[in-house]
Amino acid sequence: MNKLVSFLLMAKVKLLAHLFYRGRVNWLSQEKEESLNDVRLLVFLNHTSLFEPLFIRFAPWRFVWQVAHKVVVPGADITLERPMTGRILKVLLPGCIPITRQQDESWQHFLSHVREDVITAILPEGRMKRRNGLDKDGNPMSVRGGVADILSRLKSGKILFVYSGGLHHVQVPGQRWPKLFKTLRVNMEMLDIADYKAALNQQGEGSFKARVVKDMNHRLQHCVPE
């Protein structure tokens, strides 16, 4: 029942996003929507707003159904504990698993849910970019090592990279209501998990996690829309 409610809420968000926002999507890979059934890891880069569910506008209906039924995603416990935002996210994403920002058992608990029969989604920066381009503590945005931990548990399937053009023109963190009739921009890229891991392993410098972080930071800097 929770998954059906999740799908219906995602469908509502998708319809509203089509109604109130324009969309521009650009694929950076030859593989596109035809490989969505094989996606096992979804990496969303350039986290700027809690209104990012609007990007579901770009997902085909069959993938929306898959996300509602199969996705697991880590969510900051402080966000999930908010009275309104947390309640909405829990209904929208029943596979959202709370984690802390500490190196504790909550991350290992999340990793125990990563399997090849689900879709694991992650926002690897771990915090939102503010209007000045920094996080809320004034630090530069960068990627953390969670993607590497997930990849170590996956052997096959596809990675879908979703590079957000940012939503500060729609809603800035701390602002209650979004602005309407704006354009949502996104780049997407589909890669094979085994090929991606093999390419990183051939680099031969640093640990696997360090190579993943370096690659993700490069993508954050160079693959998001202008």
Results as ranks from 00 to 15, higher is better:
residue 45 L to V: 08
residue 104 D to L: 07
residue 187 N to D: 06
residue 191 L to A: 12
residue 147 V to M: 00
residue 69 H to M: 06
residue 109 H to N: 15
residue 198 A to S: 14
residue 89 L to V: 10
residue 35 S to A: 14
residue 218 H to Q: 13
residue 37 N to F: 11
residue 143 V to P: 00
residue 52 E to G: 01
residue 90 K to H: 10
residue 52 E to R: 00
residue 181 F to E: 05
residue 133 G to Y: 09
residue 195 D to V: 10
residue 162 V to M: 14
residue 147 V to A: 14
residue 45 L to T: 10
residue 72 V to I: 12
residue 37 N to Y: 08
residue 185 R to D: 04
residue 92 L to Q: 03
residue 85 T to W: 06
residue 208 F to V: 08
residue 31 E to A: 14
residue 225 P to Q: 03
residue 23 G to A: 13
residue 50 L to F: 12
residue 202 Q to A: 15
residue 205 E to T: 12
residue 39 V to D: 08
residue 223 C to F: 07
residue 27 W to M: 12
residue 46 N to G: 03
residue 202 Q to R: 15
residue 49 S to D: 07
residue 182 K to P: 04
residue 14 K to V: 13
residue 102 Q to C: 01
residue 24 R to E: 15
residue 3 K to W: 00
residue 158 K to E: 04
residue 146 G to P: 11
residue 126 G to W: 06
residue 100 T to M: 08
residue 2 N to M: 11
residue 90 K to M: 11
residue 73 V to I: 15
residue 25 V to Q: 14
residue 69 H to F: 11
residue 176 R to T: 08
residue 67 V to L: 15
residue 110 F to I: 08
residue 15 L to P: 01
residue 141 M to K: 05
residue 68 A to N: 12
residue 78 I to R: 07
residue 194 A to W: 04
residue 26 N to D: 11
residue 212 V to A: 02
residue 13 V to L: 10
residue 77 D to K: 15
residue 214 K to F: 02
residue 164 S to V: 03
residue 143 V to Q: 13
residue 36 L to I: 08
residue 3 K to F: 10
residue 100 T to D: 05
residue 174 G to S: 08
residue 152 S to H: 02
residue 194 A to F: 05
residue 207 S to E: 09
residue 149 D to C: 07
residue 181 F to T: 02
residue 70 K to G: 00
residue 110 F to K: 13
residue 210 A to M: 02
residue 20 F to H: 05
residue 132 N to E: 13
residue 89 L to Y: 15
residue 49 S to N: 03
residue 185 R to P: 00
residue 32 K to C: 11
residue 53 P to G: 01
residue 177 W to G: 02
residue 97 I to L: 11
residue 52 E to T: 08
residue 68 A to S: 15
